Each structure stands twice: as structure tokens, then as C-alpha cells.
Simulated scan of single mutants.
Amino acid sequence: MSELVLPKVTVILRGYETKQVLSVVEQLVGTRVNSIEVASNSPHAMESIAAARKEFGTEVHVGAGTVKNAEIARRAIDAGAEFMLSPIMFTPEIFSLAREAGVITVPAAFSPTEIQQMIDMGADIVKVFPAGQLGPDYIKAVQAPLGKLPLMVVGGVNVDNVQSYFDKGATYAGIGSGIFDPADIEACDAANLAASVRRLEESVVW
């Protein structure tokens, strides 16, 4: 297990340029939502990760998303990602690379079998994806036989429903389009971005 413990909510950014990513990260400084994932299929994703780590790395946790193979994992580690998430399960090679680099692993799973498989292979956190297709009750149901697990709900999770997942036993949540108005990110609108972060903070029992 890596030493980094993520906050309850991680912001997911996909499809944005480095300047836009940094404008969001800046608004996370000093908040409870001090964790951001940059999807690796975003333009200049690794440059964005490296820039965010350099400018805000002591104040905000920065990770890579959509890590679907070992090559992306290597690039994410080289860029300084503290954690890696995926929409699919990780391979033994990705787990090995992450362990060597001390990077948190957050592979995805959908079924109880997949969740347990990822735990057995050494996942620090298992991303239940797409959680919105399953609902909050699934999180409670799957942990009844498997026990309390470090599960992160992603997909269909937003400011309005995130607490319902925590109420049913989720430990973490990743939220993308359910936090910000994309126009605010595109325009680097600091005031509106900050207001969206405050709204999220107020919607979660920390």
C-alpha cells in the first residue's frame, strides 16, 4: 500500500488544456477537495500533470486517469502522478510499475468478482465504474459479503448524489462533469470555479 491517502473526493478533468487544468487546481488549494485526476486522453495530459505537480504539488494531490496500459502508466509516473486510475482493471505489469514508483493504484471494477480480484492483486483503492449504473445501494450490497473495502465511485456521481454513495459505504468518489460548468473551465473563470468547489464542499459530510 502506498502512503498517500486521497481525500474523499477527487476532481476528474478530461479534455482540457494545461492552462485550464491549472486554473481548476488553483481553486482546490486550501479546500477539502485537494485532489485532481487528469485523464490521459486529454490534450497534453502529461504536461498538465507535470505542471500541476510543479506549481501546486505540495498543496493538491495530482494523478493520472484513463491509464489503460503499461505505456501510459510509465508516462504518468514520469510526469509525477501520485496516483493512477483506469476505467478498466489493471494488469500485473501496471501494478508492478506503480509499486516500484510508490504510486497509488485505482483500477476499475464492476462486479464483486472483479472488485475482489483487484484487491487481491494489490489495488490501494478499487474504482467502481460506472457507479451511476449501479446506484448507491450496490456499494452497500457488495461489501456485505466482501467486507469493508476502499471503494471509489465514479461515473454518474455529482454534487447532488455523492453523499448518498458515502452513506452506503463508499470511501471515495471521483467527480468529473458533475462539479463544474465546462464553460467556466474553458474560460478559466476563477470566481465561478471557486463557487463550484464550495458547493461541493457543502454537499459532503467530511
Results as ranks from 00 to 15, higher is better:
Val5Tyr: 11
Thr10Met: 14
Arg14Leu: 12
Glu17Ile: 13
Thr18Asn: 11
Leu22Cys: 00
Ser23Arg: 10
Glu26Trp: 11
Ile36His: 09
Ile36Asp: 01
Ile36Cys: 15
Asn41Thr: 14
Asn41Phe: 12
Ser42Leu: 07
Ser42Arg: 03
His44Lys: 14
Ala45Gly: 06
Gly57Phe: 04
Ala64Met: 03
Gly65Tyr: 02
Asn69Thr: 01
Ala76Phe: 00
Ala79Cys: 01
Phe90Asn: 00
Thr91Met: 02
Thr91His: 00
Pro92Thr: 00
Glu93Phe: 04
Ile94Met: 10
Phe95Val: 04
Ser96Val: 08
Leu97Phe: 01
Gly102Gln: 05
Thr105Asn: 05
Pro107Ala: 02
Ala108Glu: 07
Ala109Asn: 01
Ala109Leu: 03
Ser111Trp: 02
Ile125Ser: 02
Val126Pro: 03
Phe129Ala: 05
Tyr138Ala: 03
Pro145Met: 04
Pro145Asp: 09
Gly147Met: 05
Pro150Ala: 00
Val154Thr: 15
Gly155Val: 08
Val159Met: 08
Thr171Lys: 15
Ile175Phe: 05
Gly178Phe: 07
Phe180Trp: 04
Asp181His: 12
Asp184Ser: 14
Cys188Arg: 13
Leu193Asp: 11
Ala194Phe: 07
Ala194Leu: 08
Val197Asn: 02
Val197Pro: 03
Arg198Cys: 10
Arg199Cys: 08
Val205Phe: 14
Trp206Glu: 08
